[in-house]
């Protein structure tokens, strides 16, 4: 794993992986959208509005998945001091936040015709909302320190505490109030959803994952450049600042 700790080597790897991910993203998105709009039937109860699912469910999966990724990367950073892991976690946060917002927005649009309400304090909806708050807190943590290493450390610990809490939050909120349908894809005993709807969904999940991967790689490259820029500026600024009295 530490073989990729070298920024140059990571950059080369990212440049090689990115085109593959772009192709995968384009193909699965095209296939998924085609199947979602033309290749799958309307639901016998929900009619055409069931097609919102092909955006809603992948986004929801990404919301949770990226939080998990963030926590894993943070653990890697704290335990093995892997220099790129902090950057991977930081890059995943805005992507996860975006998917979280999409989940909430599409859920709201779907809830209006189906349940007759834009928003309900239902267990699963509330836990996604709380997850949004956790994402915001994580990103705020990164921006709150002038010292990058300190920010990275605090944010990583927060991500780890958050992921443990997420399980408890999920449980507690569902225990508190539930209106959302129970899980129908990832459940013991196989999916209860019909194959004609499962395939476009799978394609859309693949597209969302490829997109998330691309954005994380991009975010990490930007982060690496930012670090390099900071070091350059520090080295350049050093002779002038050394004359100034440091009052901090």
């Amino acid at each position: 794993m530490h073989r990729f700790a070298n920024p140059a080597r990571f950059g080369r790897l990212a440049d090689r992986v990115s085109p593959v991910l772009w192709v995968l993203f384009g193909l699965s998105l095209a296939l998924g959208l085609y199947l979602a709009f033309f290749g799958s039937p309307p639901d016998y109860q929900q009619g055409q509005s069931v097609r919102i699912m092909y955006v809603h469910v992948p986004s929801a999966m990404m919301t949770t998945g990226l939080y998990g990724f963030m926590a894993l990367a943070s653990a890697t950073a704290l335990i093995w001091r892997h220099p790129l892991a902090h950057m991977a976690a930081r890059a995943a946060a805005p992507v996860g936040t975006a998917f979280c917002l999409i989940t909430l927005a599409t859920g709201s649009l779907w809830g209006r015709p189906m349940w007759g309400t834009w928003w309900e304090w239902d267990g699963r909806m509330t836990s996604v909302l709380i997850q949004l708050f956790l994402y915001f807190g994580y990103m705020a943590m990164w921006n709150a320190f002038s010292d990058r290493a300190r920010a990275a450390n605090a944010a990583a610990i927060l991500a780890l505490v958050g992921v443990g809490n997420l399980v408890i939050i999920r449980f507690s909120v569902e225990w508190w109030n539930t209106l959302h349908q129970p899980a129908s894809i990832l459940r013991a005993g196989g999916p209860t959803i019909d194959g004609s709807m499962l395939w476009p969904l799978a394609a859309m999940v693949l597209a969302a994952s490829a997109y998330a991967g691309l954005m994380i790689l991009k975010g990490m490259k930007i982060e690496l450049k930012a670090v390099r820029l900071e070091t350059l500026m520090e080295n350049q600024a050093a002779p002038t600042t050394s004359y100034r009295l440091d009052l901090g």
């Binding site: 709380i130 708050f133 956790l134 915001f136 807190g137 994580y138 705020a140 943590m141 709150a144 927060l158 505490v161 958050g162 809490n165 408890i168 939050i169 449980f171 507690s172 909120v173």
Partner: peptide, 12 residues
């Protein structure tokens, strides 16, 4: 910042 990060954790 403290309030923002701690209130979500205090929900359970």
């Amino acid at each position: 910042l403290m309030i923002v990060i701690v209130f979500p954790l205090m929900i359970p």
